[in-house]
Amino acid sequence: MAGDTLTSSEYIRHHLTNLAYGNLPAGNYCDGHQVVTDAGWQLAGCGEAAKAMGFSAIHLDTMFWSVVLGVLFLYIFKKAADAATAGIPGGLQNFAEWVIEFIDQSVRGSFSSRNELVAPLSLTIFIWIFLMNLMDLVPVDVIPALSQLVGIHFMKVVPTTDPNATFGMAIGVFILVLFYSIKIKGVGGFVGELTLQPFSSSNPLVNVLFIPINFILEFVSLIAKPVSLALRLFGNMYAGEMIFILIAIMYSAGTFMGLFGGLLQLGWAIFHILIITLQAFIFMTLTIVYLDMAHHEH
């Protein structure tokens, strides 16, 4: 709930601030709450301090929750994998096998080459993103309030509302796309793909003139792949989280608005179940498609 001492905008800003740990230069931050005389590694007391850390900051909450959820995913599936036999499957194994068959089918549907990496990659992306998105359904104040009790002032529990998380995965996928493009087509083939299309001519001189135009077009479309992957997921989750926060503000505006807000939150949460699954699925499917494109000559 928005505390008495917080205005709505402060409440929102508070919810959108990560728990940042980084190298903070000397200075006076957070309206005099955090005064740093010697530059050093420490927690940021507010968004302003986190910004001052620059690239050296690391979001502890994002790292923590993403690792916890990832480990949860790996633990469950490792358990299923250890129990996996050709015999009659139990409950957990059934679930894991169902998920794996679903992923396997998606990969078979969109990926036509042979690559041992793509299916496990897709499984990791789908389940991990799904779990991280799922944190969005935890009421926005529960975990921040609990962490406030143990003295942690900032806690953003949905890692996918942090562009670092989504870009981290998207860049991972992008590196794979580049790696397989070069591995399958060779450096020449990859460069050719970037420069000799979509415009081409039978006249070599005209072809040379086309090279910069082609390169600009193809390079933009190449870069757009990871950027769109990351921003789509980030945007969806950030917007969803924002709406939850806005709904939460209604709780402090009287009984009627509070009840109405509760109804809205329920509705949005139910709708959000669709979004979090869909976004995880889209990220996975586009990853498969991009990797498939990397394996094919145009």
Partner: peptide
């Protein structure tokens, strides 16, 4: 804010 978290997430992703 794009920062060190990006590298951390990338490495986590690779390990997973």
């Amino acid at each position: 804010n794009i920062n060190l978290t990006l590298i951390g997430q990338l490495l986590t992703f690779v390990v997973f």
